[in-house]
Design a protein around this nucleic acid. Structure first.
Lengths: 142, 142
DNA sequence: TATTGTTATACTCTATAACTATA
DNA sequence: TATAGTTATAGAGTATAACAATA
């Protein structure tokens, strides 16, 4: 049972998400990685090389937009493009040694404000956030 | 106790937030209000007229940026600028009749994808999302 | 001098459209 | 013809800088 009317709670959540995104973006401009950049980097580490098109599908973005993200990761020296073994159209995006070095949470935390902030929460708060993330994942698929 | 390593859970949350924001933005471009627009509108309804500077402080944005948001709400006919009674520098942003008509959750839900989506969740899921929103609010204040 | 607001400019993120190369 | 990728252009959202008016 919500503590306040539904519409007000929804607005508060929107405000929180807006503040969060602006905060992460400000931190990324100053020193680190944007949310999309961090997500793509972690995905490459977890699941191995992928094409721009595959990454775009995973993030529900257009391939052209993902191309820009991959381009900025490439400028940072974190990924590189490699020709596909058999399909001449494809370019595999792979982590460089520098990109792979960011795989540990300690390294990633330095690079993203959100990871840093979440590390300071207690277990129950973290768990609530992660559950919310799972709910959002189901929500956006509809 | 998290079900997966902390760094992976953080990345999953980042991905969820990214997908959510892109989804809300796409829906807003097609028909409705952006997250910031909806938040500002609700705030004006809840707390009454405010200046651009006050709204900017509440959303942790620059006054110039909030000016753009207010401008688009004005173009939609949802708010208007009124001279302040005593301070000639200030312009109060007030809801128009059309803007005030959006105050009910039913009206707002039609205007924002997120409100519409959340209305379809069960109570426990909604509560988790709203708790996560409160945690995020505390997080961004640090 | 500080505050409110505006205008001009630019950057990030993402989209649409048009194109080339390969399958 | 379908798919992978690139380039060009545009839009939303936000920032910085410079300015005008008022306090």
């Amino acid at each position: 049972m919500p503590r306040k009317p539904l519409e007000l709670a929804v607005i508060d959540l929107m405000q929180a998400v807006g503040l969060l995104v602006r905060r992460v973006r400000a931190a990324a401009n100053a020193q680190g990685l944007s949310m999309t950049e961090a997500t793509v980097l972690a995905r490459l580490d977890k699941a191995g090389p992928a094409t721009t098109a595959e990454l775009a599908r995973a993030e529900a973005m257009k391939p052209q937009s993902m191309g820009a993200t991959v381009g900025s990761l490439e400028e940072l020296g974190l990924v590189e493009r490699r020709p596909h073994a058999t399909d001449g159209r494809q370019l595999n995006i792979v982590l460089t040694a520098k990109g792979a070095a960011l795989r540990s949470s300690a390294q990633l935390a330095k690079r993203t404000w959100l990871a840093q902030a979440i590390a300071q929460l207690d277990d129950a708060e973290r768990e609530t956030l992660f559950e919310a993330g799972e709910i959002i994942m189901r929500l956006v698929e509809k």
